[in-house]
Simulated scan of single mutants.
Amino acid sequence: MSGQPASPSLVCETFSESDVEGAHALSLQFGWPHTREDWRFAAATGRGFVVRESGTVIGTALCWPWGERGATLGLVVVAANQQGRGIGRMLMERLLDALGPRMTVLHATQAGQPLYEKLGFRKVGLLHQYQGTGFAAPFVEPPPGERLRPLEAGDTPRLIELATRASGLDRSALLPPLLDMSQGVALVKGDTVVGFALLRPFGRGHAIGPVPVVADDGLDRQRAQALIANRLAANAGAFTRLDTPDEQGLGPWLESVGLARVDTVVKMARNGEPARDPATLQYAIVTQALG
């Protein structure tokens, strides 16, 4: 992969904090909900590249290595009036060169999917985006012998374990800063955390995710609904978003409580697939970029 600028007038450099303002302005052109704070969090937890022309940001792409073997990739955007110059491909090649042989996941729009396929990604699933403000916040009874409680400081290692097992990605670097900005709830059986859900500021309001739950006794759906309903109640009347994998089949229930499906994207992977633990399921991801 060359990863060379598509034109001598273009400058491609490492993405830095100083690029957040330009990247945010670029993403607004496409109606993305990301705030400046969302961009700052993404940049602080990952790395990437920016393309400028005459000092103006016209393209970005970021990636997040999770441990030595896995990564996610996202926030790939090129100004509408600059498309067709090879900028998107150049940015992707830069990222893939930096990531090397890592198994890498991204979520693709229909427009972006052909490029990603040419770069070695293949479809491995679908992800549905649900959101709204006029939802009901029902109480869902946890399974017998289980209860909901606020997260505690000592839960962090277990939360990292569950999130890693459910996603197939090392979440040890992501969970601590994510917990700092979130309101979370745990589902416990005896003294063991068997699931959790986080509610945090994101985009036009708040987002729920991740939501990993233990599934070894077949109670995963009830556990997930109890956790999500609790976080919906904590954000009643306010804009809330949740991105859920298609294979979990949560859509009908989310629609029944008043969240509308507004988008579906394709989950793609390169150099293999995430090594998820089938005994722990992920009912909502963090973000489409972070996985």
Rank of each mutant, 00 (worst) to 15 (best):
residue 110 Q to G: 08
residue 48 G to P: 10
residue 143 P to Y: 15
residue 45 T to H: 11
residue 157 P to E: 04
residue 199 L to T: 10
residue 274 P to S: 10
residue 194 V to C: 11
residue 194 V to E: 10
residue 229 A to S: 15
residue 147 R to H: 04
residue 96 L to C: 06
residue 37 E to D: 15
residue 186 A to G: 01
residue 247 E to F: 15
residue 184 G to I: 01
residue 146 E to G: 04
residue 188 V to D: 00
residue 258 G to C: 07
residue 27 S to Q: 09
residue 249 G to I: 02
residue 23 A to L: 11
residue 56 T to N: 14
residue 119 L to R: 11
residue 266 V to H: 14
residue 155 D to L: 02
residue 55 G to L: 08
residue 260 A to M: 09
residue 88 G to L: 06
residue 68 E to F: 08
residue 43 A to I: 14
residue 102 R to D: 00
residue 30 F to G: 13
residue 78 V to F: 13
residue 290 L to K: 02
residue 245 P to C: 08
residue 15 F to K: 04
residue 165 R to D: 06
residue 90 M to A: 11
residue 214 V to W: 00
residue 168 G to R: 07
residue 184 G to F: 03
residue 79 A to N: 07
residue 212 P to W: 09
residue 250 L to W: 14
residue 249 G to Q: 07
residue 44 A to W: 07
residue 86 G to T: 06
residue 272 G to R: 00
residue 132 G to M: 03
residue 15 F to E: 05
residue 33 P to D: 12
residue 181 M to S: 14
residue 109 T to M: 00
residue 113 Q to L: 11
residue 145 G to D: 08
residue 142 P to L: 06
residue 65 P to D: 15
residue 112 G to V: 02
residue 82 Q to D: 12
residue 131 Q to G: 01
residue 83 Q to P: 07
residue 38 D to C: 10
residue 133 T to L: 06
residue 20 V to C: 13
residue 249 G to P: 05
residue 16 S to G: 12
residue 92 M to Q: 13
residue 48 G to D: 13
residue 155 D to N: 02
residue 289 A to C: 04
residue 257 V to W: 10
residue 9 S to E: 13
residue 30 F to A: 15
residue 94 R to L: 09
residue 203 G to K: 04
residue 95 L to D: 08
residue 94 R to T: 07
residue 56 T to F: 15
residue 129 Q to I: 03
residue 263 D to K: 05
residue 200 R to S: 15
residue 167 S to Q: 06
residue 44 A to N: 15
residue 186 A to N: 02
residue 118 K to M: 05
residue 270 R to V: 04
residue 217 D to Q: 12
residue 166 A to F: 07
residue 274 P to L: 11
residue 112 G to F: 00
residue 173 A to D: 01
residue 55 G to C: 10
residue 11 V to G: 00
residue 69 R to P: 00
residue 69 R to F: 01
residue 130 Y to M: 03
residue 169 L to G: 03
residue 133 T to H: 00
residue 238 A to N: 02
residue 2 S to Y: 04
residue 106 L to R: 08
residue 271 N to S: 03
residue 171 R to D: 06
residue 258 G to V: 06
residue 163 A to Q: 07
residue 131 Q to T: 06
residue 224 A to P: 07
residue 174 L to Q: 12
residue 1 M to E: 15
residue 171 R to T: 10
residue 52 R to N: 10
residue 213 V to W: 04
residue 254 L to M: 12
residue 141 E to I: 00
residue 249 G to S: 13
residue 15 F to H: 12
residue 275 A to L: 13
residue 176 P to F: 05
residue 225 Q to N: 08
residue 238 A to L: 01
residue 80 A to V: 15
residue 236 A to R: 08
residue 275 A to I: 05
residue 244 T to E: 08
residue 252 P to Q: 09
residue 212 P to S: 03
residue 115 L to C: 04
residue 7 S to V: 09
residue 49 F to C: 03
residue 215 A to M: 12
residue 87 I to A: 14
residue 236 A to N: 02
residue 149 R to H: 03
residue 198 L to G: 03
residue 155 D to H: 02
residue 35 T to N: 11
residue 244 T to K: 01
residue 65 P to C: 09
residue 246 D to I: 03
residue 226 A to K: 04
residue 172 S to F: 00
residue 140 V to F: 02
residue 198 L to Y: 09
residue 196 F to R: 04
residue 235 N to F: 00
residue 61 A to R: 15
residue 147 R to T: 10
residue 202 F to S: 14
residue 277 D to V: 07
residue 105 V to G: 00
residue 238 A to C: 00
residue 86 G to D: 02
residue 71 A to K: 12
residue 184 G to H: 01
residue 118 K to F: 04
residue 179 L to K: 01
residue 31 G to A: 03
residue 191 D to C: 02
